[in-house]
Design a protein around this nucleic acid. Structure first.
Length: 416
RNA sequence: GUGGGUAUGGCUCAGUUGGUUAGAGCGCUAGGUUGUGGCCCUGGAGACCGUGGGUUCGAGUCCCACUACUCACCCCA
């Protein structure tokens, strides 16, 4: 077990890390074009932050957190998601005193949930995300959704389903819960065990139960119970999305498992051979900052699973090509040539040419084979003859064309 | 947390009704051309057959447990 990564964790190997870097680059580029700046928060926080922020009746907090006491006997939790930490930092550093909205993003942020791993679900996973604090107009809801779609599209992932919903504000949701409970109560005995439990904790979830939902088609819908303010917000969001030519479907079953959401919630879903998979999920959290002790500040954001994006790229064959490891591989024959080769490789690197030479004491032929396997664009050969004449052989591997180049002109030649 | 499937060299897999030194392809490595890649040919390294028990004269093969991986439910990224 010593040489086995813990359950639900994954290594990103050198040959694969470019996939992550490409996705990270895209995220940085797209987000900064919209005025978002990167935030980095600790990988662990006080447990209470998530109990208060995410909500201590949620599955995430109740069953899935990596919680432990540190040596000072503080209860510490590895963050299960990105929003609570960002909100805490927003409050702690008085970012509410800056010009609002405060727009921020994070990249390949580790998150931890103690769950049984399966397809697209790990115990340590990574999210890209955005958070916006202090913007109440639905135009920002549409903006963050547009950003998510753009990030996905620029990573070769499009044609995804955008599903949106509104779960209202504390005022209209409380009223709705009463209506819903009144409707459900007589049916309780016919519901499954989990749903009888949900009845107290989060009755809206029952409408998303695969077992019970079909029996409850005439249940009152949150969308029909929104207060005027929430309804107007949702209508505006739809108008903005339409203006941006972003197709969406309204899915009243989207509830989200984190307590802080209000009004807008959304998911971006891909259909895999194993069924639908959410690649990105988020929503508005107008009560979160205040709940955590900050000034009344609205907010909205999303998280996007990096591993899931990579899965989708793989499934669709839209993964970017691996960048070439070397522009030039230097092959040498003889000790004097080898010394020259070591010098040349360093020169090339300093000139911005990706270069290397054999470090395994291989035969010339094996050096060529190695260069071929690593897809080096050029092979530079130096032996006694070339050394004496102040030249090198420059071979274009794809063309199988070889020519002589003056030793001093190699770097310039390869930078062309 | 509940249920199903799987576990043999680095990878993908064979392995006959349990029978002697566990095979192949790919990959890795060396050579076939003592100055040259991709194709071809030849050689080499590399497996306590997931772990621990049990049945048996004998277990990769049968039984049990454990662990890991994987899939579905739940939930979510």
């Amino acid at each position: 077990m010593l040489t086995q990564a813990p359950k639900g964790t994954q290594d990103v190997l050198p040959q694969d890390s470019y996939r992550w870097q490409t996705i990270e680059d895209t995220m940085r580029r797209v987000a900064s074009l919209a005025g978002y700046r990167e935030i980095r928060t600790p990988i662990f926080e006080h447990t209470e932050l998530f109990q208060r922020g995410v909500g201590d009746t949620t599955d995430v907090v109740q069953k899935e957190m990596y919680t432990f006491n540190d040596k000072g006997n503080r209860s510490i939790t590895l963050k299960p998601e990105g929003t609570a930490g960002a909100a805490r930092a927003f409050i702690e550093h008085h970012l509410f005193a800056d010009p609002l909205p405060a727009k921020m993003f994070y990249v390949s942020c580790p998150a931890f949930r103690y769950e049984k791993p399966q397809n697209g679900r790990l115990r340590q996973f990574h999210q890209n995300g955005v958070e916006v604090f202090g913007a109440k107009d639905a135009s920002v809801d549409a903006e963050v959704i547009a950003l998510a779609m753009d990030v996905l599209r620029e990573n070769g992932i499009d044609g995804l389903r955008l599903a949106i919903n509104s779960i209202g504000c504390p005022a209209c949701r409380a009223a709705y819960h009463e209506k819903l409970k009144a409707y459900l109560e007589p049916k309780l005995p016919t519901l499954c065990e989990t749903c009888r439990d949900r009845f107290q904790r989060n009755p809206m979830r029952i409408l998303d139960c695969k077992e019970d939902a079909p029996k409850l088609t005439d249940a009152p819908a949150m969308l029909d119970s929104l207060c005027d303010d929430c309804k107007e917000h949702f209508d505006k969001l739809k108008a903005y999305l339409t203006a941006l030519s972003i197709p969406y479907e309204v899915d009243p079953r989207i509830v989200r498992g984190l307590d802080y959401y209000t009004k807008t919630v959304f998911e971006i879903i891909t259909d895999t051979e194993n069924g639908p998979l959410t690649v990105c999920g988020g929503g508005r959290y107008d009560g979160l900052v205040q709940e955590l002790g900050g000034p009344e500040t609205c907010g909205i954001g999303w998280g996007m699973g990096v591993e899931r994006m990579i899965m989708v790229q793989d499934a669709r064959g839209t993964a970017p090509e691996a960048p070439a490891l070397y522009d030039a591989f230097v092959c040498t024959l003889g000790d004097a040539a080898r010394l020259e080769g070591v010098k040349l490789v360093r020169e090339l690197r300093q000139a911005g040419v990706k270069a290397d030479l054999d470090h395994a004491a291989r035969s010339l032929k094996a050096q060529f084979k190695y260069a071929g396997k690593l897809n080096a664009r050029y092979v530079v050969t130096i032996a006694e003859d070339e050394l004496a004449r102040g030249v090198v052989k420059l071979r274009d591997m794809a063309e199988s064309a070889e020519r002589e180049v003056p030793r001093d002109a190699v770097a310039a030649e390869l930078r062309k």
